[in-house]
Write a protein that binds this DNA or RNA. Structure first.
Lengths: 195, 195
DNA sequence: ACAGCTCTAGAACGAACGCTCTACCCAATT
DNA sequence: AATTGGGTAGAGCGTTCGTTCTAGAGCTGT
């Protein structure tokens, strides 16, 4: 078989969660979209809808982490890296017709009340991304405190700018955020490592 | 009567949308929470669930706009104003047990696909808030281009930081964003108006 | 007294929800 | 050849969804 049924379920769910959130995504829709059946879904995920969603969120986390890591590695200067990252996100968002936003935000906001496994998976995702940015900053010589605070802000701002871009169906908010974040990073006056 | 039935419906719906999004909020739950009945809801809002949601989003927009305006007016320096704003948001968020986040984000993310009235209401909200920030910056002597780009970024970052704060159940992301945004604003080196 | 109106009340409808259940297919093992 | 078990298939369960509908309560103007 080309791709395993389990993988098809996870990938399809990730995209659905990204577009319509947790509550808005039905198990039967997942079945249709992933070309699986209810039987298969409950076979691989005895935990039901939430278990599928947790796996999908983790998948989305890794996908975005790969994109982020690539952007961070491709530019020695962290400020340039942030700009590159927002540019890529803006392009992807536009290409999808403004529907494929952050893979966890929508699901995260709906599951805040109860402290479910799903909510933890979302928190893990955000924190993992933040760590990638922080490590980059540390590697560039930023002090630990500044690196931590900057990293949180960068991820938060990108997150928020993506939502704004989606709602306005425009790349501008993301690109503006990229430029301003770059300015903020540079304001610390730390030279990028020469190589 | 103390508060009109219509107002009770709108206010209750606004809080529910903020906490559980559009899809996650049921008409019957709105009825229970607002101490109204289905008959009343459909009487005041013949458009059904979406019409109620649109009214609620507009209510949420005004509520947050008031908070934002107060923060902006209380501090002559826009950088200080941003910090004050994030501080207030962080306090409110913590007090609510991390559930009362941005009144429009959750609903906005779920209704991105179809271009509904609801989606437009969410876009209007974000743009309205951005305009408040922009006007403050313009009033402080920022050039039009910088003011626009900064304002978008400030709103986006606050938006994103609020989500991050909710997911991590911590005030830190919001406070960090406030400090970093203040630094960014100050980096333009424009003196606040003396008065 | 009565008609006319706004607003309240909730039973009832079809559709969709998450989930359980039984039946079946088919390759590997005995 | 028979058996086992992972995986597929979907009918059907009870519940909840958004909406519609009829009935009546409370008030105003004639």
């Amino acid at each position: 078989m080309q791709t395993s049924t389990r993988d098809r379920i996870v990938v399809a769910t990730a995209r659905l969660l990204q577009r319509q959130g947790y509550v808005g995504t039905g198990i039967k829709q997942i079945a249709t979209e992933s070309q699986a059946t209810l039987g298969s879904i409950y076979h691989f995920f005895p935990g039901g809808k939430e278990a599928v969603a947790v796996a999908a969120i983790r998948h989305g986390e890794q996908e975005f982490a790969a994109l982020l890591k690539e952007a961070l590695d491709s530019e020695p200067d962290p400020a340039d890296a942030v700009v590159s990252c927002t540019r890529q996100l803006a392009a992807g968002l536009k290409e999808s017709g403004w529907v494929d936003g952050c893979p966890v935000t929508a699901a995260a906001l709906e599951t805040l009340g109860a402290d479910s496994e799903l909510q933890k998976a979302c928190a893990d995702a955000l924190n993992g991304w933040e760590r990638l940015v922080r490590d980059k900053l540390l590697g560039c010589g930023f002090p630990a405190g500044d690196a931590r605070e900057l990293a949180t802000t960068v991820i938060s701002a990108i997150e928020g700018a993506e939502v704004t871009a989606q709602v306005n169906r425009s790349e501008e908010p993301l690109l503006a955020a990229g430029r301003q974040l770059a300015r903020l990073v540079r304001s610390y006056g730390i030279d990028p490592p020469r190589r």
